[in-house]
Amino acid sequence: MRLVPALACAGAVTVPLSVLAACGDGDGGAGGTGAAGASGAGGAVPIRASDDRCEVGRRDLTAGTLRFRVTNAGRTVTEVYVYAPGDKIITEREFIRPGQSVELTVQLGAGNYQIACKPGMTGHGIRQDITVTGQADHATDPRLSRALADYRAYVVQQADASIAATRTFVDAFKRGDVDGAKRLYAPSRIGWERIEPVAESFGDLDPRVDAREADLEPGEKWTGWHRLEKALWKTGSTKGEEPYADQLLKDLNELRTRVAAAQLDPPITPASMANGAKELLDEVATGKVTGEEEAFSHTDLVDFKANVDGAKKVYELVRAVVLEKDPALVKKLDAGFAKVEGLLAEYRKGDGYVSYDTVGKAQRKELADGVNGLGEPLSMLAAAVVR
Rank of each mutant, 00 (worst) to 15 (best):
K230T: 02
K182A: 10
D179Q: 07
Q157T: 01
P187Q: 08
D179T: 03
D215C: 03
K182W: 06
T223E: 14
G224Y: 05
S201G: 15
D150T: 14
G180N: 07
D206Q: 15
K174Y: 02
D179G: 00
K230L: 12
D141A: 02
S162T: 13
E217L: 15
Q157V: 00
G219A: 07
P197W: 11
R227V: 09
R152K: 14
T168I: 04
Q158E: 15
V198G: 08
A211D: 13
F169N: 02
A172R: 13
V209H: 00
R183P: 01
A161H: 03
D137G: 05
A147P: 12
V170Y: 05
I163F: 04
S201E: 08
P218H: 07
A164L: 13
P187G: 03
Y151M: 02
S162I: 07
L148H: 08
E220A: 13
P207R: 09
E229W: 01
A165V: 01
D141N: 12
D137K: 11
L144H: 08
I190T: 08
P207T: 08
D150I: 03
D215A: 14
A214V: 15
W192H: 11
P197Q: 11
A139P: 13
P187N: 03
G176P: 10
A165G: 03
E193A: 15
I163W: 00
L205C: 10
G203T: 13
T223M: 05
K230E: 10
S201Q: 11
D215R: 13
T140W: 00
A153G: 14
F202R: 05
L184V: 01
A139G: 14
R227G: 03
R167T: 09
K221F: 07
D215P: 12
L148W: 05
Q158D: 04
S201H: 13
H138G: 00
D177I: 10
R175I: 09
T166R: 02
R208M: 13
T140N: 01
I163V: 15
E200Q: 14
K182Q: 14
K182R: 15
R167N: 08
A147S: 14
A165W: 00
Q157G: 02
S145D: 14
L205D: 15
E196C: 06
E200F: 08
D215E: 11
V178T: 12
D137Y: 06
R183I: 00
R227W: 11
D215Q: 09
G191E: 05
D210Y: 00
D160S: 09
G180Q: 05
Y151E: 01
D137N: 11
T168V: 11
S201F: 10
